[in-house]
Simulated assay, not measured.
Amino acid sequence: MKQVKFGTDIYIGTDALTKLNDFQNERICVVTDNFMVESGMINFVTSNINDSNEHAIFTDIVPDPTIENVVSGVEELSKFNPSVMVALGGGSAIDAAKAIKLMGMKLDIIKEVTLVIIPTTSGTGSEVTDFSVITNKKENLKYPLVDDLLQPDIAILDSRLVETVPPTITADTGMDVLTHALEAYVSTEATDFSDALAEKAVELIFEYLERAYVDGKDSEAREKVHYASCLAGLAFNQVSLGLCHGIAHTVGGKLHLAHGRINGILLPSIVQYNSNENQRALERYATLARKQGLSNSKGKVAVRSLVNRITELRAKLNMPANFIDAGFTKDDVTPHLATISEEALLDPTTKTNPKTPTKEDVRQIVSKLF
């Protein structure tokens, strides 16, 4: 028996932020970063919090939030004792807010709190998932956390908040969306429900991501990519991900390269790896290729058309095709290769990959990209 559960209320459209007006007599803590305050983006939130509430703003968020960052967040938020937490920002602010809530409640420092997520990038899908990723800087590791307490109560999707995202970040986060959708589609736990969400996310990314990259003010493209991110998040929250994320998490900890950029480098190789000697994955990739109008064929020919479409999109987004293009040398990764191979297999997202990898498989995949 499998459970299909959608635990987050999602509000969309240019008036979605008015949902914040529904809160009355609450203690609202906005978790964000300094850029959101300095750029004035925070006003989208504070202008919609009515005077019956008391609110505070916590901005001590670092890129790739660390365990220490989360601990300090718990300490600071416990002083305010919020009844509502609003996370505004990209993946770092959202992951930090979710982890702060989880740790605070596990330690009985933060009481029951309503978690509202307002993403300002279109990539992680974290506004609808029970996932969070925290970094251990001492060990150069990224830990994916999975817990029901991480599931947001409310997600607010307003595409106006992503119109100023730079092209490079638009590309990186968009490729992360595509990876989420493709990995959910071939997950060993995939269902008709997750398939429908993943298929639509892939369709929207292939149609609109390049447009959003070229012209950030293209409101239709921005909205569609924003929704694709959420759809892919809903899909993988049901059925998890795969080896691409398993490798990306550990490589990101070692090389400190943007997560979506790592996924973009790895994704074509992972599709080829999964479809080799794994009939189920091959058939599912081929089916998706036909549904996206990329091929009329079956089997390896259809999979090749899917890989070609991914690499074509990657090139149009001016993203690196390998780690050399991304500015690294083989010497940068060689000392970490054994650890990467081990850690990728231990990553929880790898468990649902359609093909069970070995350490040597991971080593070969990464080595060929240098």
Results as ranks from 00 to 15, higher is better:
Gly253Arg: 01
Asp64Cys: 13
Pro348Arg: 04
Thr179Gly: 03
Ile61Phe: 14
Ala221Asp: 05
Thr121Leu: 06
Thr66Asn: 05
Ala232Trp: 15
Arg261Tyr: 08
Ile94Val: 14
Phe131Leu: 08
Val4Tyr: 09
Thr8Gly: 01
His226Val: 11
Ala315Lys: 14
Leu178Asn: 00
Val307Arg: 00
Lys368Ala: 14
Asp195Arg: 13
Thr8Phe: 02
Val116Arg: 05
Ala198Tyr: 05
Ser229Trp: 11
Ala228Ser: 02
Asn308Gly: 11
Ser297Glu: 15
Ser92Leu: 09
Ile169Leu: 15
Gly7Gln: 10
Arg160His: 15
Val113Pro: 01
Lys291Asp: 08
Glu26Val: 10
Cys244Asn: 14
Ala221Thr: 06
Lys300Asp: 03
Val239Ile: 08
Val362Leu: 05
Ala248Cys: 10
Thr18His: 08
Phe35Gln: 09
Thr120Gly: 07
Ile110Met: 09
Lys217Ala: 07
Pro357Tyr: 09
Thr121Asn: 03
Val84Gln: 05
Lys316Cys: 05
Gln151Glu: 15
Glu183Cys: 05
Val186Met: 11
His336Arg: 13
Cys230Lys: 11
Ser78Trp: 06
Leu345Ser: 01
Leu107Gln: 12
Ile57Leu: 02
Gln279Cys: 12
Ala201Cys: 12
Ala286Val: 06
Ile67Phe: 11
Ala155Asp: 07
Glu220Asn: 10
Gln272Asn: 13
Pro320Gln: 02
Ser72Ala: 09
Asp64Phe: 11
Pro119Trp: 02
Asn263Tyr: 11
Leu294Ser: 03
Phe23Tyr: 12
